[in-house]
Simulated scan of single mutants.
Amino acid sequence: MSAWRPLSTDELPTPPLETFGGPAFEVLRAAPAGAPAPTALVFASPHSGGVYPADMVAAVRLPIETLRASEDAFVDRIIGAAPSLGASVVRARFARAYVDLNREPWELDPAMFDGDLPDYAHGRSARVAAGLGTIPRIAGEGRPIYGRKLSFGEAKARVELAHRPYHDALDRQLAAARAAHGAAILIDWHSMPAAAARGQRSRSGGACDIVLGDRFGAACSPKLTALVERELEGLGYNVTRNAPYAGGYTTEHYGRPAKRTHALQIEINRALYMDETTREPSEGLARLTRDAETLTRALAEMDLGALR
């Protein structure tokens, strides 16, 4: 198996955003361009990016360090070995506060914008009401991010130049997996604040380490969820399902078991691997990275026929 590498620009389905000297996302694959996908696995990391473009920085009222608390820090490092194990990885480079790739493309809060939004914008979802739409309104314990109203043109630019091509790339990797293996397994990787995990209890009664979100069984075969749960519990983690996170837009949108695409969201308690105050990694990061490799191997060896 050849070493993974980022796809070149001409291999991507839509142009990447180049405002900061690089693409808005990266696709990492074990196989060279044009070769069949080595496994059915596609990993996504939509919230691990840390790039804050200048146009956003000029408009925000909060320190960037406050905004960084919403990042899924180090998640892309935790799954860093996945391409060498046969999984395609699509990882974001823009920060979640700039554009949230785990939302519908036009899930926008009308209160944030100067003027009316187009009819196709979705302004009444629970996520928008919470201030966490495609362009988040709040951060840092509910504080407004922006010091002024945005124009719809600003939101449209972020969606068309970052959100759309990211999902084009993700859809392309899933299609390649289905073509090569008859099915695709999408794992959407995230992290959660320790405070969000604190109120949840695993089957063993321990505090929650990892949450598996399968949209209450709608997004993937129950055998996939059970395998991931079994592997993680065998590695010593306390696992819960669908609470407090059942899976976001990515899981809901792509999870179509009847159409041979199974999607599962994995949320990792940040306290396992980092200091949430200093944002420095702890010794737990190395353990999680090793355990993510173990889980990836188990998924790569899964009998896809059992998912049907």
Rank of each mutant, 00 (worst) to 15 (best):
I210C: 13
I210N: 05
V211R: 08
V211T: 15
L212C: 08
D214C: 07
R215S: 10
F216T: 04
G217D: 12
G217A: 14
A218S: 08
A218E: 14
C220I: 07
C220K: 03
L224Y: 01
T225H: 01
E229T: 14
E229I: 04
E231M: 02
E233K: 07
E233W: 01
G234Q: 02
L235D: 02
L235R: 10
L235Q: 09
L235G: 05
G236F: 03
G236Y: 09
N238S: 15
T240M: 08
T240H: 04
R241C: 05
R241K: 13
Y245V: 10
Y245K: 11
A246R: 12
A246F: 05
A246Y: 05
G247D: 02
G248I: 06
G248C: 06
G248V: 14
T250W: 09
T251V: 14
T251C: 04
T251S: 05
T251Q: 13
H253K: 14
P257E: 08
R260H: 01
R260E: 01
A263T: 07
A263M: 07
A263K: 06
L264W: 01
I266M: 11
E267C: 10
N269E: 00
A271T: 07
A271H: 09
L272T: 13
L272S: 09
L272N: 10
Y273M: 09
D275F: 11
D275T: 11
E276P: 06
